[in-house]
Design a protein around this nucleic acid. Structure first.
Length: 649
RNA sequence: GCCGCAAUAGCUCAGCUGGUAGAGCAUCUCAUUCGUAAUGAGAGGGUCGGGAGUUCGAAUCUCUCUUGCGGCACCA
């Protein structure tokens, strides 16, 4: 006999081997009917599993949040059956649950089309309606291999081979169709319901390896209820509404064209935003002891050979050959240039830490498929800096960077940050001893940050070729994660490029270099801000802050006065004197995401007032011109300057 | 780079199985001076992404290149 404890704390004895379904039935038929799975000691399991030892049992209903994973996983099996029924000869591979749904990877030569989706969804509905139970069997390795081999399922055979010998091979059947699967599943296909939808088809490499066959991945999603599915689809539409590529055009910030793949044409408004970010960052860096430099865009191949870029980063570099057959490369990183600045003039240990910053434009030949608006481009501006220091100074400097980064993100409203340590990659330069030291140093910093309560994680093998890094990932308004800032400890490059300083003992010493960026890429950060704010930038960032819109031409003179006064108050303003209705102007400037509309007509002109309308609000506020300008001038002050004015640093 | 899809006016898009292009918005002109998300009328605007082929004839079919989109792989 075993003792089974229920959620209310009560416990009962059952013969060992009693199944969850039997226990549910022993309590009440209605409970058994609505239960789709169980959790044993908190772990989801098939309801048909026998209980072999004492356990805490919970019965999981279809509307239990834990059931969502099962609904999706079951739906993946149904998708696979539907596809194999409709398209015989298609091989199945894997079909996991992912964040917002699930997918299944198939091997088939002909592509799936939108019409196929309709047919597949119909077939899935049929399979679900049949309501066949999911039944589990344990097979031997040979049995499973034979089954899949005779059916030409080469990928499944490979999966069978990859399962450790001490693990059972579990097979789940739904009617006549079966799949190798870890489980668990719900009791039958009917429990899936009809709130599912095929989303898209895309290529994906078998086992994520670009040297292996390309499979067709069908993405789909499923929810417990139609209302939840609808809410999810609505959320997708919301993300599309925020798309920076669309908003960039609507707000007239930038454009791309065919001749410059992955390179941005910044328009006046976009460039204003970009420069606002640079000015802000320049102030923050100056406040933290950085000096700013500018280094060449194009440098001789030999320098890149010395730095190691030529050997490890060549396929990402733009190169050019001049008339005299010299090979140059456009810089993909600023570090070698900053080392040249460091080397110029003898440095003493008293000069350390030396923090050299540059808003450096780097060119990287990114794979064509990676390009994405201004988020992923081939030429971008980094808020880059290199800190030359001693080994002893690493921790303090890394923590200073950390504090600065977090303060900066906070100024933009990003408070949910994850800090990840990336360790040595396979393709790297430098000795293992140097890597040990670098990883140890950053590991200590990570521990310290963890102790301070920050969210941390480790990404093994994801470091840069010259050193490990701490990566700062922020979460935007709709929950997406973006990697922006980075701190990288480098024991290699200063030595490779012959940088040294004179130590306290008069000996030449090689400095350690910390590479760091906070926005990361200004282009990407700009894109993140556009999407985070859905185009509704805070006043200090908005490239056009105020539009003065007239109601009739009789207010033109006054509108000119208002415009001049706004500009004098340091605000970025334009006037719209066109002979158009005020409705038309309101609509147009609202769509262009102008934060403040000052509407002026005869009434305002007579009283030297303005009628205010803020973006996103229908409310109209009448205010004296001076009062309004004072308020907006104050609101438009960047957060760091506001703190300085308030005497807080 | 790989798989799939796409490219028609500044923007969004229509154009069926081949018979040499169309709408709305935007632009320009005229009228209107009208209080918070589209005033009306008229006009101009496209060698249908580039190249090659099939055909009497190609926006439409084929090949190829380029660019973009969705993923994968890569990454700031």
């Amino acid at each position: 006999m075993i003792s089974v404890t229920f959620p209310d704390g009560a416990s009962r004895s059952f013969p060992a081997g009693t199944t969850g379904a039997e226990i549910a039935r022993s309590i009440s038929p209605s409970l058994a009917k609505r239960t789709v799975a169980m959790a044993l000691d908190g772990k989801l399991a098939d309801l048909a599993d026998p209980l072999l030892q004492d356990a805490k049992i919970e019965f999981v209903n279809r509307d239990d949040p834990r059931a969502l994973e099962l609904i999706r996983h079951d739906a993946a099996h149904v998708l696979a059956e539907a596809v194999q029924t409709l398209f015989p000869g298609t091989q199945v591979t894997i079909g996991p649950v992912i964040e917002n749904g699930f997918y299944y990877d198939f091997f088939r030569n002909a592509p799936f089309t939108p019409e196929d989706f309709v047919a597949i969804e119909k077939k899935m509905t049929e399979i679900i309606a049949r309501d066949k139970p999911f039944t589990k069997e344990v097979w031997t390795r040979d049995q499973a291999k034979a089954w899949f081999e005779t059916r030409g399922e080469a990928f499944k055979v490979e999966l069978v081979d990859a399962i450790p010998p001490d693990q059972d091979l579990k097979i789940y059947k739904q009617g006549d169709w079966l799949d190798l699967c870890r489980g668990p599943h719900m009791t039958s296909t009917g429990k899936i319901g009809n709130a599912f939808k095929l989303m898209k088809v895309a290529g994906a490499y078998w086992r994520g390896d670009s040297n292996r066959p390309m499979l067709q991945r069908i993405y789909a999603t499923a929810f417990a209820t139609q209302a939840e599915l609808d809410a999810y689809l609505h959320q997708l539409a919301e993300a599309e509404r925020r798309d920076h590529r669309r908003l960039g055009r609507e707000m007239d910030l930038f454009h791309f064209q065919e001749e410059g793949p992955g390179t941005v044409f910044w328009h006046p408004k976009g460039w204003t935003l970009f420069q606002t970010l640079i000015s802000y960052m320049r102030r923050r860096q100056q406040g933290d002891g950085y000096v700013e430099v500018n280094t060449p865009q194009v440098l001789d191949r030999s320098l890149w050979e010395m730095s190691g870029h030529w050997q490890t980063y060549r396929e990402n570099m733009f190169t050019t050959m001049t008339e005299d057959e010299r090979v140059f490369a456009l810089k993909p990183m600023n570090c070698p240039g900053h080392i040249q600045v460091f080397k110029n003039g003898l440095k003493s240990y008293r000069d350390l830490p030396l923090k050299i910053a540059e808003f450096g434009i780097v060119h990287r030949y990114e794979p064509s498929g990676a390009l994405h608006g201004i988020m992923r481009v081939r030429a971008f501006t980094q808020d880059d800096a290199h800190i030359f220091c001693t080994e002893d100074q690493i921790k303090e400097e890394a923590l200073r960077i950390n504090d600065l980064i977090l303060s900066i993100y906070g100024d933009f409203g990003f408070d949910d940050i994850v800090i990840k340590l990336s360790t040595r990659p396979e393709k790297r330069v430098g000795s293992d001893e140097a890597w040990d030291k670098a990883e140890l140093a950053l590991g200590r910093v990570l521990d310290e940050l963890k102790a301070r309560g920050f969210k941390t994680a480790v990404n093994p093998g994801e470091g840069a070729f010259y050193g490990p890094k701490l990566e700062y990932t922020l979460r935007d308004a709709i929950g997406r994660e973006w990697q922006c800032g980075t701190t990288q400890v480098d024991f290699n490059m200063p030595g490779r490029l012959g940088a040294f300083y004179i130590g306290a003992d008069s000996d030449k010493k090689t400095p350690v270099m910390i590479h760091r960026a906070m926005f990361g890429s200004l282009e990407r950060f700009t894109g993140i801000l556009i999407e985070h704010f859905a185009g509704h930038l805070p006043l200090w960032l908005s490239p056009l802050q105020i539009v003065v819109a007239t109601i009739t031409n009789e207010a033109d003179d006054y509108a000119h006065d208002v415009l001049a006064a706004a500009r004098k108050a340091g605000l970025r303003a334009e006037a719209d004197l066109r002979n158009e209705k005020i409705n038309y102007k309101v609509r147009e400037h609202s769509l262009a995401k102008v934060p403040v509309l000052m509407v002026v007509g005869k009434k305002e002109a007579a009283e030297r007032r303005v009628s205010l309308r803020r973006l996103g609000s229908q409310e109209q506020v009448s205010m004296s011109l001076d009062e309004a300008l004072a308020a907006f001038a104050d609101e438009g002050v960047p957060p760091d300057l506001k703190r300085a004015a308030a005497g807080k640093v």
